[in-house]
Simulated scan of single mutants.
Amino acid sequence: MTSMRKRVVLVGAAALVLAGVGIGYSLYAVARSGDRVHAAGDVVPATDHGLYVRDSEGSVVLQDGGGAPGRTGTGLECNRFYAAGDTAVCVSVEGSLKPTTKVEVLDADLTPTETFTYSGVPTRARVSPSGRMVAWTVFVTGDNYAGTNFSTRTGIYDRDTGRIVDSLEGIPLYIDGERVHRVDVNYWGVTFAEDDDTFFATVSTAGTTYLVEGDVSEWSATALRENVECPSLSPDGTRIVFKKRVNDSVDDPWRLYVLDLATMQETPLAEDRNVDDQAAWIDDDTVAYGVDGGVWSVSADGAGQPELIAEDASSPAMVHD
């Protein structure tokens, strides 16, 4: 990153009580992802259409139709991967006792153009439909308040301007029309609209999680609804798939729902397992997500049954022509 690029560091003293708000992600499982190997096959660019997944060995592959034999390697090893437009992001972890997250922004040929490093463990990654905006979330330690040392940091990078926000914690937040000034404000799970200006994310404060709608140009975020985590905006921009806390269980707290942004009506999806993931849209009618060691898809209207579409895989990203 050149010295001419603007660097916006908006770091507050916010943290997240994991047991209270329920991200439920295993730090040690990610940190111990271990020695991984590249997938076999020709390397493909992120602009090739199809379903990208992270296989069980940590390699990002393009799946050509339904199973491991139809996979082509990208040459990338990532804990989280996402691609859209002419951009991809590979978020990986280095070290274990004191893990560091490496965020690589990649062009259409999967060549790194920018690399950022942060303390902590990667958990989420997204790219806007045009490929301009990139976001990531990491778990960090050291925010020693509210009885926990765990918290998150969510960053955003604008490929066009070079602007980077290392943490969203400083963005002005409005809940019920009032500006909120609290030390425990914490964001994760960004998803972008087509205009590259509007984004949605989860925010936690005072023990409650909210869906927020953010505005990059106005630099503000407004809470829309409680109990919405890890949102993902549909290709047509009308709905959000998200994980909803349905009980206080440690092992089985979340279910997938779709929220209609016009009516604010929720629809439970036909997936009765606990899904701790930021689901991705295959198209306007179908969502994909990682659960039980594979990537599954299900109809976004609540009908049908889940279908296994990628064995031994996670982190789905559908790239269209």
Rank of each mutant, 00 (worst) to 15 (best):
Y187D: 06
L97V: 13
P235H: 08
I164V: 14
V190T: 11
V258S: 08
V250M: 09
G293H: 09
E77K: 08
G304N: 07
V11K: 00
I164A: 04
R71I: 04
T115A: 14
A31K: 00
C78H: 05
I164G: 00
A280H: 06
A125K: 10
V298H: 04
Y187L: 05
H38I: 08
V228Q: 05
T208S: 12
Q305T: 15
V43K: 15
R5W: 04
R239Q: 13
N186E: 14
T238I: 00
G120M: 05
V165H: 03
G67S: 14
L97N: 05
K6M: 05
G142P: 01
R7F: 01
F116I: 03
S249I: 12
N227L: 01
H181P: 00
A310N: 13
H181D: 13
M133I: 15
I282F: 13
R80Q: 13
A201K: 00
V93A: 02
R71C: 08
S151N: 03
F139W: 04
I23M: 11
W136Y: 14
I175N: 10
Q305E: 15
W296K: 06
E57P: 00
C230R: 03
D292T: 10
V21T: 15
F192L: 05
R32H: 04
L10E: 05
T115D: 04
A206F: 02
I23T: 10
A313F: 06
L224P: 07
V287F: 03
S314C: 09
V44D: 04
L173W: 11
M318R: 14
Q278M: 15
A262H: 08
V8P: 00
D197Q: 14
V203T: 15
S96N: 00
G304F: 05
T117P: 00
Y25F: 11
D276N: 14
S59P: 03
V291S: 13
P122E: 06
A201D: 05
G66C: 04
T117Y: 02
D260F: 09
A223V: 07
T100A: 01
V216A: 02
Y157G: 01
N79L: 02
E266G: 01
I164Y: 01
M4F: 07
G58K: 02
V190Q: 08
R163L: 03
P129S: 09
V180R: 15
T74I: 11
I171K: 10
V134H: 04
L269W: 07
T267Q: 05
M1F: 08
G75P: 11
V61W: 12
R54L: 12
P112I: 02
T222P: 07
G214V: 04
